[in-house]
């Protein structure tokens, strides 16, 4: 078995595009679900509108990179408003169903033949990232960091991505330790109580939904630029659920929970995947009964089982405090 390949692939997943994209999505969810208790099951739609605003504006309509970014963020804000206005007055489970429905609407529209002219149908869009890589100050060449070797463009998007993660963490950290963050936690515990104390709960929930959506949408940009392509089916419900798994793994309502979760999640997923493939290639008995396509499914089986086991045995995740969670006797 080629251990250096296994290690480099695993490290690249843990610190590369995947971890950044899902880390940002989970940071947004952390503000919404972890701190405010909002069940946003449509986080993938926030990534989608950002990624597609960029891709469509640049590729299909000829606007510049920066306009794509600004419109993408505005689109995420608009989506939060559209989702929030009807649902934030409803019970938590209704919010979950409406957000998941809205995310599915977004995905179906993006992949539709009817709107293919703008969004490229099920093939997506792929020529929009030049404006970004033109900004790359790193000299052309390959850069070796430990066992990983990256092109200047890969290195650039990873650096930009981690800077965005750092920025998102800073914003979250400032927000949740302020009186504003205190109101959010109060809403998570009991929104009627907070209302009885003179707080406009609806406004705070809306703010949390918007900020969480905008932080998550940064992940959409990183996905689009990192892959240099957007594809509608990446923005399905499974991506949202992966972000939840990551948040719970790291620890909800902990500032660093989502990032730690994303790193470990992708190391486990990609690591197990590449080890399994190596075993099959090496012709190890039993394991090699699996076809390559079956081996690719194993990671999803692991995510499902892992999410269940985590939620049952360690709902506080890695960083959380079990005693704190046990107080929640609802």
């Amino acid at each position: 078995m080629d251990w250096s390949f296994i290690i480099s692939t695993t490290l690249l997943a843990a610190f590369g595009i995947e971890a950044i994209v899902f880390g940002l999505a989970a940071i947004g969810l952390n503000l919404q679900f972890g701190y405010t208790g909002l069940l946003n099951f449509g986080q993938s739609a926030f990534l989608a509108v950002a990624a597609y605003s960029l891709a469509t504006l640049v590729s299909q309509m000829g606007f510049s990179f920066w306009i794509g970014i600004v419109v993408g963020i505005l689109a995420a804000v608009l989506l939060a408003l559209l989702l929030g206005v009807p649902t934030l007055r409803l019970r938590a489970d209704y919010l979950a169903i409406v957000t998941i429905a809205a995310a599915e609407i977004v995905r179906l529209l993006l992949r539709s033949v009817t709107l293919k002219e703008w969004f490229g149908g099920s093939d997506g869009i792929n020529d929009f990232s030049r404006g970004f890589y033109d900004l790359n100050p790193i000299a052309i060449g390959r850069y070796t960091i430990g066992p990983i070797s990256l092109s200047q463009d890969q290195l650039f998007i990873i650096i930009v991505g981690w800077c965005l993660v750092a920025l998102a963490l800073l914003v979250t950290w400032l927000l949740v330790r302020s009186p504003w963050g205190r109101v959010l936690k109060g809403i998570r515990e009991d929104e009627d109580a907070v209302r009885s104390l003179g707080k406009n709960v609806y406004l705070y929930k809306m703010q949390a939904l918007i900020i969480g959506g905008v932080l998550g949408c940064l992940g959409g940009f990183v996905y689009a630029l990192g892959r240099q392509a957007v594809n509608p089916d990446f923005f399905g419900t499974d991506s949202t659920f992966f972000a939840y798994a990551i948040l719970i793994l790291g620890g909800a309502a902990r500032v660093f929970g989502p990032v730690l979760g994303a790193i470990i999640f992708w190391a486990l997923i990609q690591g197990s995947d590449v080890i399994l493939r190596s075993l099959i290639d090496a012709g190890v008995p039993v394991v090699s009964l699996m076809t390559a396509s079956q081996a690719a499914i194993i990671r999803f089986i692991l995510v499902g089982a892992g999410l269940m086991i985590l939620m049952i045995y360690r709902p506080q995740g890695i960083l959380g405090d079990r005693k704190e969670l046990a107080l929640d006797a609802r």
Partner: peptide, 15 residues
């Protein structure tokens, strides 16, 4: 409606 997972003093400050 005590806000369980918040400290007593945080409950008060919220008021």
């Amino acid at each position: 409606k005590a806000l369980s997972r918040m400290k007593v003093i945080e409950n008060m400050r919220l008021g």
